[in-house]
């Protein structure tokens, strides 16, 4: 379980200030919804948390994002192990060009996790899970547990060897979730993870999030207010690159302090 705090975060795209000083403590073991009108910087904020932001050209970031007290923007930070702690679901899922099994096993493989490390991840996901001294068996157990936790196991257990690209988009998104769980992610970031999905797949992802939130911090961007109402324990409202208001979901939805939040919640602003 890790703790995330963001301090005085500024982001500039080509010199234009897009995030204007964000300070935020992400509460542990809960679902945090980032809401706000289009273009307000939700995606930017989320991608600054795992430094995917720097893939875009000409971005400058100041301030800090601390995970368990370690600043991810520290030049000496171990970016790989920090990213490993944060599973990431993008708007459109991307299955790796290999089998369903290998998609989930990919992370443990590149991180060269041995049988003990693999068992440890499996046990943290499911205390009752099988363990094995044999790395291959341990990996197979872990893949199963991750797929179960992502709510995909029953649909794919007969065809773990077939290409992941043949899954439906909703299944692919749950596969991304399983992939993230397998590296031992301690927190899940989602950028509108259900926006490409049909209502049933959306419901499935939401259910997995709910179930996982007893163990994980989940930060998700959404522009569907009803989804935020259904899921969120904590809500962050942003407007034009500024953090306007944040707090427990009931408070933000029922008695927001700021006029702007009230108008957005009522649907006057889009």
């Amino acid at each position: 379980m890790s703790h995330l705090s963001i301090k005085d975060l500024h982001v500039y795209y080509e010199g234009v200030e897009t995030l204007k000083g964000i300070d935020l403590e992400i509460p542990d073991k809960s679902i945090v919804a980032i809401i706000g009108p289009s273009g307000c910087g939700k995606t930017t904020l989320l991608r600054s948390i795992n430094r995917l932001l720097e893939l875009s050209s000409d971005v400058k970031v100041t301030g800090s994002v601390e995970i368990d007290g370690e600043n991810i923007y520290d030049p000496k930070a171990d970016l790989i192990s920090l990213r490993k702690k944060m599973g990431f679901l993008s708007q459109r899922p991307f299955p790796l060009p290999c089998s369903i099994f290998d998609n989930v096993a990919y992370g443990p493989k590149i991180h060269r996790m041995d049988a003990d490390a693999i068992n440890a991840v499996a046990l943290s996901l499911e205390p009752a899970s099988k363990v094995s001294k044999n790395r291959k068996e341990a990996l197979a157990n872990l893949v199963e547990i991750c797929l179960v936790k992502a709510g995909l196991w029953d649909e794919v257990k007969e065809r773990l060897g077939s290409p992941a690209s043949r899954l439906s988009i909703g299944q692919q998104q749950r596969l991304s979730l399983a992939r993230a769980l397998a590296v031992g992610a301690e927190m899940i970031l989602g950028d509108e993870p259900t926006s490409a999905l049909d209502p049933i797949s959306t419901k499935q992802i939401e259910e997995q999030f709910k179930a996982l939130s007893s163990q994980y911090s989940i930060v998700m961007v959404t522009h569907i207010l009803r989804q935020a109402r259904r899921l969120a324990d904590y809500v962050v409202f942003m407007y034009l690159g500024e953090l306007i208001e944040h707090g427990p979901a009931e408070k933000i939805f029922n008695s927001p302090e700021k006029e702007m939040t009230r108008r957005y919640i009522k649907g006057d602003m889009s």
Binding site: N50, L52, L55, I80, S81, R83, K84, M86, G87, F88, S90, R92, F94, L96, P97, C98, Y106, G107, I110, H111, S176, R179, A180, V183
Partner: peptide, 27 residues
């Protein structure tokens, strides 16, 4: 090749080279 392909791997903690080798070149 979609940017998501690279992001999916980097987010798992892959290095740039691993992302290139395992996914980008394969695709």
């Amino acid at each position: 090749i979609p940017q998501e392909a690279r992001e999916a791997l980097l987010a798992l903690g892959a290095t740039r080279w691993e992302a290139t080798y395992h996914v980008v070149l394969k695709l």
